[in-house]
């Protein structure tokens, strides 16, 4: 009985992390579709991200209420709760970004497509590594470090690409200020995904120290 509940909770947690990781992959695909001008596939990925985000919310709420109603891991449930919430912020950021692409359809000069995709790759990599870090935090806290430093690495790379991209845009004379501002908004959006992944990593650093004591 005791282990049945635990197993169910473990499964939910694993699924939550799968969903988060999958959202990242779908995000990268959607961005590529957007620049390839493949509207149908972009819409498919948009819908997928929406569904994944909803599923992540359901799972998160399920885990949270089970942790509290059954008083499981009373010592570290607060930490797990915060971890779920901050991870959910990453998924939300992805959903918001891709939705804005769909609504506002920013016009990106062809020469910048590669940079945008590059930026997205770094953000998705950061997201992916943080998911791996959480998986290890749950089973083998000693290995978390191996993934956290990668999260920080990709977040910095994303910042660098974002900065270079913004410089490039604001030095392009053929673009209106309104277009420049619009593009900057999307760069910030994509870069935020990496920043939010970094927030999760920051928390994980502390929780890992706590668990090793």
């Amino acid at each position: 009985m005791l282990f049945k509940k635990t197993k169910m909770l473990e499964r939910k947690m694993d699924e939550f992390l799968d969903v988060t990781s999958e959202t990242g992959l779908a995000f990268l695909e959607a961005i590529k579709n957007y620049f390839d001008n493949d509207q149908a596939k972009f819409n498919d990925h948009l819908k997928k991200i929406n569904d994944l985000e909803n599923r992540a919310d359901v799972l998160r709420r399920g885990i949270e209420s089970q942790l509290y109603t059954e008083t499981l891991i009373p010592e570290s449930r607060g930490d797990v709760l915060a971890l779920l919430e901050t991870t959910d912020n990453v998924t939300n950021q992805v959903k918001e970004t891709i939705l804005d692409f769909s609504i506002e359809t920013p016009v990106v000069p062809k020469g910048l497509h590669k940079d945008f995709i590059h930026l997205t790759e770094h953000s998705v990599n950061a997201m992916d590594e943080v998911v791996k870090a959480i998986r290890h935090f749950l089973r083998n806290p000693m290995a978390v470090r191996d993934y956290l430093h990668k999260v920080y690495y990709y977040e910095k790379e994303a910042d660098k690409v974002a900065e270079a991209l913004k410089r490039k845009i604001f030095r392009t004379e053929t673009l209106d200020l309104s277009a420049k501002s619009h593009l900057r908004f999307f760069i910030r959006h994509i870069d935020s995904v990496a920043d939010k992944a970094e927030d999760v990593a920051d928390r994980l650093t502390i929780y890992t120290i706590k668990r090793s004591i």
Binding site: F3, K5, I73, V80, L138, P141, R211
Partner: peptide
């Protein structure tokens, strides 16, 4: 737990037991 890589939730159940 490090050696066996026991899940945080399961470790909780084992600890209770």
């Amino acid at each position: 737990p490090r050696f066996l890589q026991i899940h945080l939730f399961r470790l909780d159940a084992y600890t209770r037991l």
